[in-house]
């Protein structure tokens, strides 16, 4: 038994996931861009750094950085979500080799978080 092949249900589900994540990220970033222009900010201005504790208040307060950071985070998380969804499908289908591949990709991404945090 294997997860679906090219053009099959797994591919279509992953395509939907990518579409939702990407469209969601672009909508948030687009709103942030519009707010940036409305507030008279230039893309070349110094931007506030990412502060997760301020994200919700920035979004509720209509501040561009909140929308943009949320969109950037969603964009960065979407490929990882695609790998997780594929991993689940491979486990269910008993595809041992592809399960190992997908699991290993997630480990590498997790190591990236460690590397970024350690050097930040």
């Amino acid at each position: 038994m294997s997860a679906s092949r090219p053009g099959g249900t797994l591919e279509i589900r992953l395509a939907q996931l990518l579409r939702i994540g990407t469209y969601g990220a672009v909508i948030l970033v687009g709103l942030g861009t519009a707010l940036m222009v409305i507030n008279g900010r230039s893309p070349l201005d110094v931007a506030p750094p990412l502060d997760p504790s301020r994200l919700v208040s920035d979004v509720l307060g209509g501040r561009p950085a909140g929308f943009i950071w949320l969109g950037v985070l969603l964009a960065l998380a979407t490929p990882t979500a695609r790998v997780i969804a594929a991993l689940r499908a491979f486990i269910r289908a008993g595809e041992r080799e592809m399960t190992i591949v997908a699991g290993s990709i997630l480990i590498v991404i997790a190591l990236g978080v460690v590397a970024g945090t350690a050097g930040g």
Binding site: M36, P43, A47, A65, V72, G116
Partner: peptide
């Protein structure tokens, strides 16, 4: 991102 290497203001219109 974690090392402060992403500028959100420049990224937003470019990404759109």
């Amino acid at each position: 991102l974690l090392r402060g290497g992403i500028d959100p203001y420049a990224a937003a219109p470019s990404a759109v």
